[in-house]
């Protein structure tokens, strides 16, 4: 009997020791998240079609936020709303707020030009201008009135370096950008977006037209860019969203079904529709 008593004593000490270890291990440094985009009950109609319904989302600084969902769920419409590009469609009507750094982007005093300087965009198909690589990247700064060759040179080099394509094109800056491969063209478009020193980069399926190697390069680039910029990316590629993003929002039929840390969305989603979509049961 004495033996058992002794064992229990030892067991107790061991148990309390592991308990202490656990509590020590759990105190993680808290990540401070600074919201950069916040939407409040944002609604959008194409004529009679209620395309986005009560969207309440927050995107944070220095994070990659992925938007996933089946075709026609409103994800591209939503991203294009963030830099007001969606207004190019004449029958569009919106309601609710989109706050960029706590300022409503639909307010009169906030001009579209100002917004689009801060919120750059990269599209699904690489769309360089039929001009030289240099002129493509210098286009934005020139529009903003920068004429000095030396400053433009600096901006072009920095943007191309940030877009991880400088080494590939530095000896042929005067060649036409159309002659580059699809993956290179896409990175030129990213460099062009970076040249105006934006704050946020919107990407609408940036790699769906690219081969796997170029895709990897763009994904690596996104990880680098996230240190200085905030990225919102629309993607059809589930694995890409799971790999590159910090948070993921699942859009379905114009609603946000679930928005959470990417880990939660792909490992243990709360909503059955999210589970069904990410595991390929529909969509």
């Amino acid at each position: 009997m004495a033996n058992i008593k002794e064992r229990n004593e030892i067991k107790k000490t061991v148990d309390t020791a592991t308990l202490e270890d656990k509590t020590q291990g759990e105190t993680k440094p808290e990540i401070i998240r600074e919201p950069i985009f916040k939407t409040n009950n944002f609604n959008l109609w194409y004529g009679d079609n209620h395309a986005l319904q009560d969207i309440n989302l927050t995107f944070n600084k220095n994070e990659i936020s992925a938007i996933i969902g089946p075709s026609g769920c409103g994800k591209s419409t939503f991203v294009k709303s963030l830099n007001r590009m969606v207004e190019l469609v004449p029958i569009v009507r919106t309601e609710g707020e989109i706050l960029y750094r706590d300022q409503d982007i639909f307010e009169r005093k906030f001009t579209v030009e100002e917004l689009r300087t801060k919120v750059g965009m990269v599209f699904q198909k690489p769309n360089p201008f039929p001009k030289s690589i240099y002129d493509n990247v210098a286009y934005g700064p020139r529009v903003h009135g920068i004429r000095k060759k030396q400053i433009l040179d600096e901006i072009v080099e920095k943007s191309l370096r940030d877009a991880a394509i400088w080494d590939e094109v530095k000896d042929r800056l005067n060649e036409n950008a159309i002659g580059l491969s699809g993956g290179q063209q896409q990175r030129i478009c990213i460099a062009r977006a970076l040249a105006t020193e934006p704050d946020v980069i919107l990407m609408d399926e940036p790699t769906s037209a690219l081969d796997p190697i170029s895709t990897t390069k763009v994904e690596d680039l996104m990880q680098e860019l996230k240190k200085n910029y905030s990225i919102v990316v629309v993607t059809h590629n589930m694995q890409q969203a799971a790999r590159v993003s910090d948070t993921t929002a699942f859009f379905y039929q114009g609603y946000v079904v679930e928005h959470d840390d990417t880990k939660v969305i792909f490992e243990n989603p709360r909503d059955q529709r999210t589970e069904d979509y990410v595991s390929g049961r529909f969509g």
Partner: peptide, 8 residues
């Protein structure tokens, strides 16, 4: 299959 969620 690159499984996710419950499948994984």
């Amino acid at each position: 299959q690159a499984p996710v969620a419950t499948d994984t």
